[in-house]
Amino acid sequence: MKYFFLSYIFVGAIIVSAFGFRGSKSELPPIEVFPDMDHQAKVKYQASSEFFADGRGARLPVKGTVPMGFEIPSKPAVDGAKPARVAFTSGLDYYNTGKIGDFYGDGLPSEITGDPTVFNDAFLKRGEQRFNIHCAICHGASGNGKGVTSKYGILTAFNFQQAGNLDPANAAAYRADGAIFDVITNGKGLMGSYGGNITLRDRWAIVAYIRSLQLAAKESGVTLPLQ
């Protein structure tokens, strides 16, 4: 019986030492079981740093790099190039959301198709590149939903090559361009949001490339490129 009481007292002492008495205060730092990245090895804005000779924490960008989200102009400013626009979602129009009112739109927005310096072969090549970087791992190189992750139990990636996917009348398989854009932006199901990783123009480039994969499969009878 004495061992029971000793164990009881021991457990009570552990609880009190870990959590303290209700309402008690301490100058010691709290015990963090899950720190949730509260303490990161980084220099905050306007803070000094002894690591650099000048003592400044804020540094100029590395030479030759481009800030994330900055769109490089297609031509120099002296030749009439417009200032680079915000490359991430910044409005409620079709170009920014993929929606027209409460409904998904279809077709590429005029901000893409109306600019010959944007809507060209390089635009589709860009879509292919971005798709292979961000999407092919789950959706497959041909968009058939059988990417690398399908070999490890993730079998819910959308199959853009299923029958009727290019036919708007087939509601079960068809996804409007705006709907695809919205999922890239906000995620759906197991797919997380890529709105903070992929710029607006690149999202639309991916949509255009997905359509090219579907058209190639429809015309040739196979899902290209082959897995």
Rank of each mutant, 00 (worst) to 15 (best):
Y152C: 07
A169T: 14
A157G: 04
L155E: 11
A205E: 00
K151E: 06
N159I: 08
V118W: 00
A136G: 00
R175L: 15
N132A: 12
Q129S: 15
R201W: 02
A172M: 10
G147I: 08
A172H: 02
F181A: 02
N159M: 08
D202I: 11
R130P: 01
A141D: 12
G143N: 08
I112A: 01
R175M: 13
D182L: 02
Y194L: 15
N165K: 03
Y209L: 08
N120F: 04
G178R: 03
T113Q: 04
A208C: 11
A173I: 06
L200A: 07
K146T: 12
A163G: 09
A171P: 00
N186P: 09
G143A: 07
A171C: 01
N144S: 09
N120G: 10
K151Q: 12
N132K: 14
H139E: 09
L200Q: 07
D115P: 04
G153H: 10
A172G: 07
A176M: 03
L124F: 14
G143M: 07
A163P: 00
T117R: 12
F160Q: 02
G187K: 02
K188N: 13
L213R: 06
G114P: 08
G187R: 10
K125Q: 15
G196W: 03
I112H: 02
A172S: 14
I154Q: 13
A169E: 12
K151A: 15
D167H: 11
C138Y: 08
K125T: 12
S193R: 03
A172T: 13
R211G: 10
K188G: 00
I210H: 00
G189C: 04
S150H: 06
D115K: 09
I206G: 06
K125I: 07
G114E: 04
N165Y: 02
K188V: 10
L124K: 08
Y174G: 05
G187Q: 09
I133C: 03
I154E: 13
R175E: 10
T149M: 15
N165I: 02
F181N: 00
I198D: 00
S110I: 13
G189E: 00
L190H: 07
E128P: 05
G196A: 14
N186G: 04
V207W: 03
A176F: 04
A172W: 03
I198T: 04
A179N: 05
R126G: 15
G145F: 01
G178P: 01
Y209F: 14
A179S: 14
G195Q: 08
A141I: 15
F158L: 08
R126L: 15
F160C: 07
Y209E: 09
T156Q: 12
Q162D: 03
A171N: 10
I133R: 11
